[in-house]
Design a protein around this nucleic acid. Structure first.
Lengths: 340, 340
DNA sequence: TATGTTTGCACAAACGTTTGTGCTGGTGTA
DNA sequence: TACACCAGCACAAACGTTTGTGCAAACATA
């Protein structure tokens, strides 16, 4: 249905040179194949005139490369992932690569199905922030030797490369920050517990408590979804405990928003009545009232490292298995109060 | 470099049937071409066993279709666009279409370059939220009869289809809302003035003022970029006026954040000292303190309509030129105070 | 038995590239 | 004069599909 685009064959006919000659000229192999200056000029001129761009399907078919990286994200509307996606796209496009985007919607079935799609579409590399704990569907990517790297979320005891923030450190330092401000009763509002980041942040949390001789209280560890709603419900629950926490550690920015809502509705004040620290720093965190203390992850670096790794693999450069956990950083603002 | 995937030819060899037969069976043309039950079963079974998925490059080359929609967004990290992208991806994947994502970074050069890329990659359709006022580079899309639709931003007096929110209405009602709360000195913090939405919101603003007999004050119309920084600087400036506004209308959620920052730094209180309404409702708006009154756009509907239009064009269904402006909605919260 | 019709499939071209190899005409050398 | 050599290009296969057409065998009809 679309209007015909100029092809290498048309240029061949117009110029009188064969398609192979045209191809070589346009791909910069003129010297190597001793194409005359005259031919080069003519061909380049005509190609320019016709605004010729090689058909990427044909090229991909022949070359077995698509110049495309698949990106599978659980929720592109989550600012954290959106920011990561932005940096991934930027890094890719700098090398003339494009991004095929999938939003798995935190749904393992869609993730599976779309991974298949990515394989069928011959992605040169695939970047995934996996939804859950299931990883069987990734084996085909490995078998086909398609470069794969996980971002943010990953699997333990698995040699698939990943780049994420140091969730153990982040969880530990967030908790420590609260403890050092005098808090002993600290609620942890979790995300999906089948994901590694949640597990590690949880471990960091526990590690900090234990280090300071504070006994764990399982009633303080609550929640299981990365959403506003889940954060809201969890905090409502935890605030009803006979001895409610004096501080809350929300495991994501969405959970944090839910927490704030619940706290407000309970007529409590941040930080007077209860302190809050949120994992993942977002632009608006500084503008909430009070401004929110957060754990900042370097999403730009995550994106860049992931893409660079893919490129190295594509170019067959030797690489160590990339399993990076980037340092996190506490951004101290006004939502944590020193007590006692 | 990648490990070979099963092809239709391998299935052909294994089953002893020709590639054409295999193709027809796998594409559901068995009856039409009188393929025996026996052949069908065998072929399907083998295809299943080998986990066969047709090579999309070869398929695309032959069919001249890519089953891919190009999406060009000025800033995927902007929650408004991220949400739109999410709905676009969702609608597309329901019809087994994929999304090729580009972040033009509010940069016309990158937009131009990537539009070329989309054409070379034979997108079946293209959805763009154009960066600026330049539109020459879209003509090639039209000439090639590739379905194209603009979202959010568009061009006036131009028959390229678009779907956006009714920015005139939104601007008008936001301003009216402030006026009806007693405000007469209303600052308008603008985004990029080369974009149609900004122009229309501006017109809506002026229309409301005029309707209520309030004289326009050009010093109250300020700003030219969709960013936190621009919102911040603009509001700082406008607050220094001898007669500063009693209310502010921020043209986007990022501008709104900048406005809040500037207001805070000037030691003013929202809404006691100054009221604020923000174009584009985002989850966090309800959680800011005070919660922010916003103009809500239906990003889900925008995405769906855009994709559906593309599909109709792809399937050669007759359509009217799609030029839709969706109703906006004032979400009244606590950032606007009734005065006088 | 001769002819026509249907069943069930195979052949081959085409989509637009890239690339290994081969060919021709001219120049240089002995 | 004979030969080698090189410059400058063309040929054709291949990538994995889809699809128009052709054709043999089986069956039906007269």
């Amino acid at each position: 249905m679309q209007v015909a685009k100029p092809t290498i064959q048309q240029i061949s006919e117009i110029t009188g040179y064969s398609v192979s000659t045209v191809s070589r000229v346009l791909n910069g192999y003129s010297k190597q194949y001793r194409i005359s200056e005259k031919a080069q000029e003519l061909i380049k001129k005509k190609a320019e005139e016709l605004n010729f761009k090689p058909n990427q399907m044909a090229r991909g078919l022949r070359l077995k490369r698509t110049f495309t990286i698949g990106l599978v994200i659980p929720d592109i509307a989550n600012p954290f992932f959106a920011m990561m996606a932005k940096h991934i796209e930027k890094a890719a496009s700098l090398s003339d690569y494009s991004i095929l985007l999938v939003d798995s919607d935190e749904n393992t079935e869609k993730e599976k199905q779309q991974i298949k799609n990515m394989i069928a579409r011959d992605m040169d590399g695939i970047i995934v922030a996996p939804v859950g704990s299931e990883k069987k569907h990734f084996t085909e990517i490995i078998e086909r030797k398609i470069p794969l790297v996980f971002v943010d979320r990953y699997f333990e005891n698995c040699e698939i490369p990943f780049v994420t923030s140091d969730n153990l450190q982040g969880g530990y330092e967030a908790t420590k920050h609260l403890i050092e401000n005098g808090h002993k009763r600290i609620g942890l509002i979790k995300g999906d517990t089948s994901t590694q980041p949640v597990l590690e942040r949880l471990n960091g949390y526990r590690k900090a408590l234990q280090e300071y001789g504070i006994t764990l209280n399982s009633a303080y560890e609550i929640g299981d979804t990365f959403s506003i709603e889940s954060g809201y419900q969890s905090v409502r629950t935890v605030l009803k405990l006979p001895q409610p926490p004096t501080a809350l550690f929300a495991m994501s920015n969405l959970i944090g928003l839910g927490a704030i809502k619940a706290i407000k509705e309970t007529d409590l004040n941040i930080p007077t009545d209860i302190s809050l620290i949120v994992y993942d720093d977002q632009p608006y965190a500084a503008f909430l009232n009070p401004s929110i203390t957060t754990v900042k992850q370097d999403s730009e670096q995550i994106g860049k490292l992931a893409v660079n790794y893919i490129f190295k693999k594509i170019n067959n450069e030797k690489t160590d298995v990339l399993q990076v956990k980037l340092q996190t950083q506490i951004i101290s603002r006004a939502s944590v109060k020193k007590i006692k």
